[in-house]
Simulated scan of single mutants.
Amino acid sequence: MRPPIDSGTVLITGACSGIGRELARQLAHRARTLVLVSQTVERLEALRDELQLSNPTLGVVLLACDMSRPGEVGDMLAELSRHFLSVDVLVSAASVAEPGLFAEQRWGCIERMLMANVVAPLLLARRLLGPMLARGRGGLLYVSSGAGQLFLPGAATYAATRRCLDGFIESLRLELEGTPICVTQVAPGPVDDTRARAVGGLQGTRPFFEVSAAQCAREALAGFERGVPLVYPGRGHRWVMTLLPRLPRAVRRVLGRRVARALHPPAGAETPVLPEGSRGPLEAGPSLA
C-alpha cells in the first residue's frame, strides 16, 4: 500500500532547511495541506510563499516547535487539533547535531540531542499512529543518518541517537506489518549543506559521496512510495553502507580509531577553532548526516 501523500495532510518537522525543506518542495504539488514545523515561524514564511505561489490550492500551516522540548511537541500537536487537521503522513526530518568529545560536552548539549533525535520522533509517532490506524491509512517517513551504522569518535552522542532511532524504526515497521501504515527510514551520508559543513569544521571541503538535499529528498520519497524499509541516497553511499555490515566489527573499530587519532593532535599542535556560533542545533541538515 502506498502512503497517502496525494491530497493528504503531511506534517514535516525541520522544514526550514536542508532535506526537510526539499521534501516540502517536492510534496507541495501533491499534498492537500502541508504542516511545516520549525523552531520559529519566521524561518518558514519565505518557503510558504514560494510553495503557495507555484501551488495556489495548497494549504500551508506554519507551526513553531523546539523539538528538543517535549512539552512544545505536545503543544504543537494540540494546535493541530485546533486547526481540525488529521495528519496522514509524518515526515520526521528535524535533528540536532553538536559535534565534540563526549567528556568535554556540556550535558545540556547531550540532552538536547537525545530529546530532539530520539524522544521527539517517538512522541510524534505515539500520538499520531493511533488515529492513522483508526482511519486505515497513514505513513511515517523518518530522515535519520548513516551515522547510526558507524563508530564516530567526536560524535558519540549523535551516533547513539541515530542508532537508537534505527532500532525503533525497524522494530515498529515489523509491528505494523499487515496494517495500512507505511514506514520508511532514510539514512543519508554527507548532504550538500554549507552550514552543516561549517559546524563540522569542514568549510571549503566537499565530503566523499556527498549528494544534494534535493536528490536525497527525491530518493527518499521514491523509496517511501515503494514501501522500501531503508533508503541510502546516492549510489556511492548506498554501496558503502551495503558493504559496511559485512566488515568484521574489529575492522570497523580500526577505521573509527583513525578518526579518533585526528581528534587528539600532538602536544603543541594548534587546535582548530570552529567558527563563531557553530555549536548551535541544526534542523534537517545535521553536520554528520
Rank of each mutant, 00 (worst) to 15 (best):
A159G: 13
A116K: 01
V96T: 11
A116H: 03
G136K: 10
L140W: 05
L133K: 12
L129Q: 08
A97L: 00
A159P: 03
G136D: 13
L150G: 05
Y142T: 04
A160P: 04
L152N: 06
Y142D: 01
G108E: 15
L129N: 08
G154T: 07
R127A: 14
Q105V: 00
Q149L: 10
A159V: 02
A93H: 01
G100Y: 01
G148E: 02
R135K: 15
A93P: 00
L133R: 14
Y158E: 02
G139F: 03
C164K: 03
A103V: 13
L133F: 12
P153Q: 09
V119F: 12
G138W: 06
A155V: 01
S144D: 11
R112Q: 13
A156H: 04
R112E: 09
N117W: 01
Y158F: 09
R162C: 08
L133P: 05
L150M: 14
G138C: 10
R112T: 11
T157D: 02
G100D: 00
A120L: 03
E111L: 13
S95A: 13
V96A: 11
A120V: 04
G154F: 04
L114K: 02
L101W: 04
L128M: 11
Y142N: 09
A116P: 03
L122D: 04
L129H: 07
R106Q: 14
R112A: 14
R135Y: 12
A156I: 09
R112L: 09
V143Y: 00
L124H: 08
R137L: 11
I110K: 06
E104Q: 12
A160L: 01
L140S: 01
V96S: 06
P153G: 06
A97P: 00
C109H: 12
S144I: 08
L124P: 02
Q149I: 05
A147D: 03
L165T: 06
L101N: 08
L123N: 07
